[in-house]
C-alpha cells in the first residue's frame, strides 16, 4: 500500500486518518449523548473525562490530517454530475470544519465553566477564556447544536458512500477501504 494518495487513489495515511477518526468521532458523539443523560455522579464524571480526552484527540488528529491532506494530491470525486461533486466537496469541508468546531467549542465551554480540560490525566490544557457563566451557556447550546450537524453530515456521508457503492457502482467506498490501492 502506498503511503501517499494520488489523483486516483487514497494512500495509507489518509485511509488510517479516515477510519481512526471515524471511530473516534462516533465514540465521542455517543459518549457525549450518554453522559448528558447520566445523573450527577462518579460515572457521569468518568464519561465526561473520556469525552474531553477523546475530543481533544480528534482536534490533534484533524490538525495533522489537514496538514497531511494539503501536502498530498487528493483523488477526484467520482460523482457523475457536477452538482454531486460540488455537494461532496461541501460535505467534506463541513465535516472538517466540524472536527475543529466541536472540540474547540467544547474546550472553550469547559474554560468558561472553570472546568479545565485534562487529556487522559496526562496534562491539562490552558483555559481559552476566563470563567463566564453566560458564555458557558451559549457555548453549551452551540456545542449541542453542532452535535446535530455532526449527526446529519456523518449520516449523509455514510448514505452517500452506500449510494456510490450500490447505485452508481463506482469505487468511492472501495477506494477508502483498507488494503490494496484501488486505481480508478
Amino acid at each position: 500500500m502506498t503511503i501517499r494518495s494520488t489523483k486516483h487513489a487514497f494512500g495509507a495515511v489518509t485511509k488510517t486518518f479516515h477510519w481512526v477518526m471515524a471511530l473516534l468521532v462516533i465514540s465521542v458523539f455517543s459518549i457525549g449523548w450518554y453522559m448528558d443523560f447520566l445523573p450527577l455522579g462518579m460515572e457521569k464524571l468518568e464519561w465526561i473525562s473520556r469525552h474531553k480526552s477523546l475530543g481533544i484527540t480528534v482536534l490533534a488528529l484533524v490538525i495533522l490530517r489537514v496538514i497531511w491532506r494539503v501536502s498530498e494530491p487528493s483523488p477526484h470525486e467520482l460523482g457523475k454530475l457536477q452538482i454531486e461533486r460540488l455537494a461532496a466537496k461541501a460535505g467534506h469541508l463541513g465535516l472538517y470544519l466540524l472536527m475543529f468546531a466541536m472540540p474547540l467549542t467544547g474546550w472553550t465551554m469547559s474554560s468558561a465553566a472553570n472546568f479545565p480540560v485534562s487529556v487522559f490525566g496526562m496534562f491539562t490544557l490552558p483555559n481559552l477564556v476566563s470563567p463566564n457563566q453566560e458564555l458557558f451557556e451559549t457555548l453549551r447550546t452551540v456545542h449541542w447544536l453542532l452535535s446535530w450537524a455532526v449527526a446529519g453530515l456523518v449520516g449523509v456521508h455514510f448514505l452517500a458512500a452506500l449510494k456510490h457503492h450500490f447505485w452508481d457502482r463506482d469505487a468511492t467506498l472501495r477506494r477508502m477501504l483498507p488494503g490494496k490501492l484501488e486505481e480508478n
Binding site: 464524571l45 465526561i48 473525562s49 474531553k52 472553570n114 472546568f115 479545565p116 480540560v117 485534562s118 487522559f120 490525566g121 491539562t124 490544557l125
Partner: peptide, 9 residues
C-alpha cells in the same frame, strides 16, 4: 482537581 484538571475557587 476535577477530572484530573486543577480548578480554583
Amino acid at each position: 482537581t476535577q477530572l484530573g484538571a486543577a480548578f480554583e475557587g
